[in-house]
Nucleic acid binder design. Structure first.
Length: 855
DNA sequence: AATCTTACAGTTTTT
DNA sequence: CTGTAAGATT
């Protein structure tokens, strides 16, 4: 955040005047300050306030700036008050950033925008107000995926369905998919509903929805779907919101799914047009009926190649049209997105939404932002050339006024280990040249690739940070703690009760829980009440009965204390008295300390909320992953989680067929899958400001065994003029390839063939002068020995010693140590500041001493 | 009820 | 090969 380059990106206080000339200056004189410094297209996007607008904002073209400025303009020009503007994003992070930038732009003059948030938080908020209309109470619980699956497991068990053959996870996926497409149980096409559990999928979905109502709970999908149902069944409520929202803004429109699209359409309609017909016909209209022939809903399942020209309307859209939702002239809705960055098709995002915007919102104005302020010329050219291979796109050409800069590099490595080694060295070199590690990222296709980098960085002592992984509230310890609080807040929360009844272990096993379930079901009471009743009987073994009674008494006590104590203090007491904290204190595994730290963080975060109820309401919707530390460290993450971020230097390893593009995407989605993978590649390259470095390995371990791979077709799709083929650090593109004899050439041949393509040959011809040998040169002149020799003189050690905690005598052989990642172990060898440690669980590892502590 | 053993799968992720 | 989850064992 301290990098000066930051402002060459979206913020642009110093936008080059080339764009406007006299006209721009004239505008600047009459318009408010926030409008100055926008380029003509941006300015257009900000000031076209009436009617539907689609802003196609390529990577690094100032998308967020346009959105925030547009809101500022709406507010400052007095066209609407903050409460009359609906602005939706996908992530809390994006919402927070917009709020922040809006605040900066407008000063403190305007109170925070109440309707700026994620689809889910806004949907959830509307739902709380009208909960009774959809058979919920306003204090309903939001279930996460884990709760969802456990609930489904119970339903499967109740229906005697073998959850080996029909896993609950799969059903959860199906239900999510249906909800993403805006389908209630009765609207699911019969063919699809029959696909699960010998035709019982549809019934299970219905049963699940019913059960949710009884538990007073909603899953993530419901937050939107129940909103749609609410709006359709209660036109008066819909009208209220249509009147309220004078302006609607949508971020990342290419990522919207059908449900989100329907939700937006309903809200974007002019208030007077609410169709009274909508009420009764929702269910019956598209309901194929129970006995209908299994139509495998081709329109929904078969891949529909995206195409800019009008497409056949798809099922859900037809439905919207049939309900009269298409009739009204759309209001002032502005969607911002980039079809070239649509990478979430697999979780329900419909690229069609953005491709068909003009069709869906007649009279829409489409504005293209094509001036890129992030990347240098070569990087942009490479990314543009690559993405041009996609057919289903609206078409944009990114331009920059920046210098060409460094070429994009492509480097081959013998195997993934060498790939990691080479990248590690490049990073160390950058570090020695004074580049901040914070400005370096490694973006992988699949998370298993991260491991090799982590291992390498641990040995090098190079600080790194893994982005992504389990979210804060998804961690077991957080969910356990929350479950305790949920039971205190709402004794009817069976899922929460079940989760912690035997955590920590209190000898209340499955048998006992089953007994509680039976009891509860018979008397139609929650598990909590069942437990209270059963400890008065002698149905349980004395030991179990005693321990359950203790737990119940604790809960009663905590509930009484709830009125007297601040909720943070209560949480502390609950965790201590339940033995939960103690459980982790006694745990000697590597991550126990971290878990205790997380629990502390949870309590800290509770302070931001007024009371327990408020905290629980928000935790599942607006709790973000722990804010990254501010240490200087290399970021390691997946390409997906890199969307929206930018770095000076970006390393993109693993560009091999099968991995990237991923085989599964190809197998399951065909050409659409390939195009999405290509968009992912485009996203990856455009994350880089100054350096994009692509890698492929000839050999990679997949599912344990070594597999020879061929370089990704995407490498062939790069423009030769902007790409440089380099050698892996230490002398050879093959690094350690030497010494393996003829078989190696077989492998080279395999990949060489894919390099007979024009793009590749251009690339080779182009890099002729200066840079040294390329792939055409025999790699046999290099060997592992060469590699090692060239590595030796590097003074990494010198730097690391300076960073390490102290003298090397701090550790001795057989010393017991603790490492944040690998846990406990014993020192078996010492080389300067590098220790070889036999970890109890992780095996033998080489680690820099500053990363371990004595026990 | 807790621990050990075996089977099995194994992109991408937000809310 | 490795981590998880369900099943078998004590």
């Amino acid at each position: 955040m301290t990098n000066p380059d930051q402002f060459s990106g979206n913020d642009l206080p110093d936008y080059r005047p080339a764009a406007g000339g006299i006209a721009a200056r004239a505008r600047a004189a009459t318009l408010p300050a926030y409008l100055t410094g926008l380029n003509p297209e941006q300015s257009d996007a900000v000031q076209t306030l009436d009617g539907p607008v689609l802003v196609l904002a390529g990577a690094g073209t100032g998308k967020t700036r346009v959105l925030t400025t547009r809101i500022a303009h709406i507010l400052a020009s007095g066209r609407a008050r903050p409460g009359e503007v609906l602005a939706v994003t996908f992530t809390n992070k994006a919402a927070r950033e917009m709020k922040m930038r809006l605040g900066q732009m407008l000063g403190q003059a305007i109170e925070g925008m109440p309707w700026l948030g994620t689809f889910h938080s806004i949907g959830g908020r509307i739902l709380r107000v009208h909960a009774e209309l959809v058979q919920l109470k306003s204090n309903y619980t939001v279930l996460d995926t884990d709760d969802q699956i456990r609930l489904l497991k119970q339903l499967l068990a109740a229906d005697n369905i073998d959850d080996k053959r029909w896993p609950a996870r799969m059903l959860a996926g199906l239900i999510d998919g249906w909800k993403n497409r805006g389908l209630t149980p009765s609207q699911v096409p019969a063919g699809e509903a029959a696909m699960f559990g010998n035709g019982r999928g549809g019934k299970l979905y219905a049963a699940y929805q019913e059960r949710l109502k009884i538990l007073n709970a909603a899953d993530f999908g419901d937050l939107l779907l129940e909103n749609i149902r609410l709006f359709r069944e209660h036109p008066d409520v819909l009208r209220q919101y249509q009147q309220r929202f004078k302006y609607i803004l949508v971020d990342e429109y290419q990522d919207t799914n059908v449900a989100q699209y329907l939700w937006l359409r309903l809200l974007a309609q002019a208030p007077s047009q609410t169709s009274p017909r909508a009420r009764g016909e929702v269910g019956s209209h598209s309901d194929p009926g129970e006995g209908a022939p299994p139509q495998i809903a081709d329109s929904q399942l078969a891949e529909t190649p995206p195409h800019p020209t009008p497409l056949p309307a798809r099922g859900e859209r037809e439905q919207a049209v049939a309900l009269g939702e298409n009739a009204a002239p759309p209001k002032n809705i502005c969607c911002v997105g980039d079809d070239d960055q649509s990478i979430y098709g697999w979780r329900g995002a419909e690229v069609d939404n953005i491709l068909r915007f003009e069709h869906d919102f007649p009279g829409a104005k489409v504005i293209r932002l094509e001036r890129n302020y992030r990347s240098t010329g070569h990087i942009l050219a490479a990314a543009s050339y690559l993405i041009a291979h996609n057919e289903g796109r609206l078409g944009k050409t990114l331009r920059t006024e920046d210098v060409d800069g460094e070429m994009v590099t492509v480097t081959g490595a013998w195997d993934s280990e060498e790939e990691a080694r080479a990248i590690g060295e490049e990073i160390e070199q950058l570090q020695r040249q004074g580049h901040a590690l914070n400005e370096i990222a490694i973006l992988v296709r699949a998370s298993f690739q991260m491991r090799e980098f982590e291992d390498r960085f641990v040995t090098l002592g190079l600080p790194y940070r893994v982005i992504g992984g389990p979210r804060f509230y998804e961690r077991a310890e957080i969910r356990d703690a929350l479950a305790y609080l949920r039971v205190i807040n709402s004794p009817a929360d069976d899922l929460a009760f079940e989760r912690i009844v035997n955590v920590p272990k209190r000898s209340i096993g499955d048998a006992t829980v089953q007994l509680l379930h039976d009891h509860g079901r018979r008397r139609r009471i929650p598990l909590y009440e069942a437990a209270r009743a059963i400890i008065e009987t002698d149905e349980l073994k004395p030991k179990t009965r005693g321990s359950l009674r203790d737990l119940m008494m604790s809960f009663e006590r905590w509930r009484a204390q709830r009125e007297l104590l601040p909720h943070t203090e209560l949480a502390q007491i609950v965790l201590d008295e339940s033995g939960y904290t103690e459980m982790w204190q006694k745990d000697r595994s590597a991550d126990a300390a971290g878990r205790l730290e997380n629990l502390k963080e949870l309590i800290r975060s509770m302070e931001d909320f007024e009371n327990l109820q408020g905290f629980l309401e928000h935790i599942s919707l607006v709790m973000d992953r722990d804010g990254g530390s501010d240490e200087d460290a290399v970021s390691v993450m997946t390409l997906h989680s890199a969307k929206g971020l930018e770095f000076d230097t970006v390393f993109l390893p693993g560009w091999e067929e099968g991995l990237f593009p991923h085989q599964r995407a190809l197998d399951e989605q065909g050409r659409a899958g390939l195009e999405e993978e290509r968009r992912l590649a485009h996203v990856g390259i455009t994350r880089a400001r100054k350096r994009a470095k692509l890698y492929f390995a000839t050999n990679r371990r997949i599912h344990g065994s070594w597999t020879t791979t061929i370089p990704s077709r995407f490498l062939d799709e790069l423009p030769g003029d902007h790409v440089e083929i380099t050698e892996s650090k230490g002398g050879s593109g093959w690094g350690g390839a030497g010494g393996y004899g003829a078989s190696r050439f077989d492998d080279v041949g395999a990949f060489g063939s894919s390099y007979s393509t024009p793009g590749w040959q251009r690339a080779q011809a182009n890099r002729g002068r200066g840079t040294g040998s390329g792939f055409s040169e025999s790699p046999s002149s290099f060997s592992r020995g060469d590699f090692a020799r060239k590595r030796a003189p590097l003074t990494i050690e010198g730097e690391l010693v300076a960073k390490s905690t102290g003298t090397q005598s701090e550790f001795s052989l057989q010393q017991r140590v603790f490492h944040q990642k690998f846990g406990y172990g014993e020192v078996v060898r010492i080389d300067g500041n590098k220790l070889t440690i036999a970890f109890d669980k992780a095996g033998e590892k080489k680690v820099v001493d500053s990363f371990v502590e004595r026990v």
